[in-house]
């Protein structure tokens, strides 16, 4: 049995940046209705740059590890950069191959951040 890479399980069991940012500049609640995964993100911005990301979520190891990793990796990136982020970028960040059936699990957190950013205007 080939479990996920150690970093995925670590992030799942001990997620980073959990919580809600008070007076956030942007936030979004993304739900995958077909499987029940659920991620709410809040963002602090400096102009068009991401200063901080926090999340509250429930779901499988892939979805929760992905948002935990993104909440670190995307800090300092601009709105425009993050909006062009796609599956292949994410797969690189996770460091494992994601099968098609786990596509939505992996992308849920990124979608939450992108939707939050889409609504964000200076």
């Amino acid at each position: 049995m080939d479990l996920y890479a150690q970093n995925i399980l670590d992030h799942y069991k001990h997620p980073h940046h959990q919580g809600v940012i008070a007076h956030a500049d942007a936030h979004y609640h993304e739900v995958n209705d077909t499987c029940g995964d659920d991620i709410a993100v809040s963002l602090k911005m400096t102009g068009l740059k991401i200063k901080e990301i926090k999340f509250v979520g429930e779901g499988c190891a892939i979805s929760q590890a992905a948002i935990s990793i993104l909440s670190e990796e995307l800090v300092g990136k601009t709105k425009a950069e993050v909006l062009t982020y796609e599956f292949k970028n994410l797969e690189k960040s996770l460091g494992i191959k994601i099968s098609e059936r786990r596509y939505k699990c992996a992308l849920l957190g990124l979608w939450a951040i992108q939707h939050a950013l889409e609504k964000y205007k200076i």
């Binding site: 049995m1 080939d2 479990l3 996920y4 499987c35 995964d37 779901g59 499988c60 190891a61 892939i62 979805s63 099968s99 059936r101 786990r102 699990c105």
Partner: peptide, 13 residues
């Protein structure tokens, strides 16, 4: 263990 992870990993088996 979340059900998705279990179904995926047992599916590989």
């Amino acid at each position: 263990i979340h059900p998705h992870d279990a179904a995926d990993l047992l599916g590989q088996e």
